[in-house]
């Protein structure tokens, strides 16, 4: 399907001598008859699998078919994961084995941590980790762990999803805003961090309390002033104010106008001012030149953000159609 992504970073080499031995050559496996991949009666494609890949998966198919619950099968899943960490059947089988053999789940957490470090963008490995956390009912290492992954890639979607699940399931909200703040100080354009701030706020205080909204508006503005072209901080500001009048919010218009007079021409600033004008126009109590000012800003945007010219033309046209005197449109 169109939403399936190729996970290109799967597959790695074996790293110890025992593992280098083929299963077909190991005496302790000689009771198993390997099952080769069935490519169908008339294969569209005849795949020449690498020898090792074939060896491991032929034995895996055999133990899967026999539904064998053994230590050696558990070891075999490790080798299969090394060859393809995205194979969801292998992971499921591994979970079945972990339960059947009553394995130490702490040990499994150490193992999956290593695997995720190697394959941080793989769906299956994170799903496995979540299952183990659920079984252990212990999230104590999860925030540290996701932090270590986000240190290498602060926008890793899987790590953020896992972190959100942990926060929500185990109610670990306390230090999260501090963490997000730290990330934003490192990179104020980190959209994932802004989203996380919104996520924490909406799951804790919400945005109905005036003082909360005040604080968050100030927070966003502070970052906007540092980088007026930062889409994410503007987005957050809009999110915080989604249910309120922006035209009457104390100081907001003034702040925007100050930035404008300091020659800031960020499309996000201009667009925000246009939205304030639009709200004034809707309220019908506005200075006569409001529409003109708004459409003039659209003209500036058409110049400074030419790649989105059609969008700004649309905004200008709809303002004129809605609020202009007849004939002006």
């Amino acid at each position: 399907m169109a939403a399936q992504e190729i996970d290109a970073d799967s597959g790695s080499e074996f790293d110890d001598d025992l593992a280098l031995q083929f299963y077909r050559d190991r005496p302790e496996w000689n009771d198993i008859i390997p099952i080769p991949q069935d490519d169908g009666p008339n294969p569209v494609v005849r795949i020449a699998y690498s020898e090792r890949f074939q060896d491991v998966f032929d034995y895996l198919r055999a133990v899967l078919k026999a539904d064998e619950r053994s230590e050696r099968a558990l070891d075999l899943t490790k080798d299969a994961v090394e060859l393809n960490a995205a194979n969801y059947t292998v992971w499921h089988y591994r979970r079945v084995l972990l339960q059947a053999l009553k394995k130490d789940l702490r040990e499994e957490m150490r193992y999956i941590s290593e695997i995720i470090q190697d394959h941080p963008k793989n769906y299956q490995v994170w799903h496995h980790r979540r299952a183990i956390v659920e079984w252990l009912k212990d999230p104590s290492n999860e925030l540290n762990f996701t932090e270590s992954i986000l240190e290498k890639d602060s926008k890793n979607y899987h790590a953020w999803s896992h972190r959100q699940w942990v926060l929500q399931t185990f109610k670990l909200w306390d230090g999260e805003l501090d963490y997000v703040h730290k990330l934003l100080l490192e990179d104020l354009r980190n959209n994932s961090a802004w989203n996380q701030r919104y996520f924490v706020m909406s799951n804790t205080t919400g945005f109905s309390d005036e003082s909360v909204v005040d604080r968050e508006v100030k927070y966003a503005i502070e970052f906007i002033k540092k980088a007026p072209n930062n889409e994410s901080s503007w987005s957050y500001l809009r999110g915080v104010l989604a249910l309120r009048d922006i035209s009457s919010f104390p100081g907001l218009m003034q702040t925007c106008q100050d930035m404008y007079s300091e020659n800031v021409r960020s499309p996000f600033l201009l667009s925000f001012i246009i939205d304030i004008y639009e709200e004034q126009l809707e309220s019908k109590t506005f200075p006569e030149d409001t529409l003109l000012k708004a459409t003039q800003l659209c003209d500036v945007l058409i110049q400074v953000d030419a790649i989105r010219l059609k969008y700004w033309e649309y905004i200008k046209r709809s303002l004129t159609l809605r609020f202009g005197k007849q004939g002006e449109a």
Binding site: W160, S161, N195
Partner: peptide, 8 residues
């Protein structure tokens, strides 16, 4: 996003 609250 992928689930409620996940980034766009």
């Amino acid at each position: 996003g992928v689930r409620p609250g996940s980034e766009s």
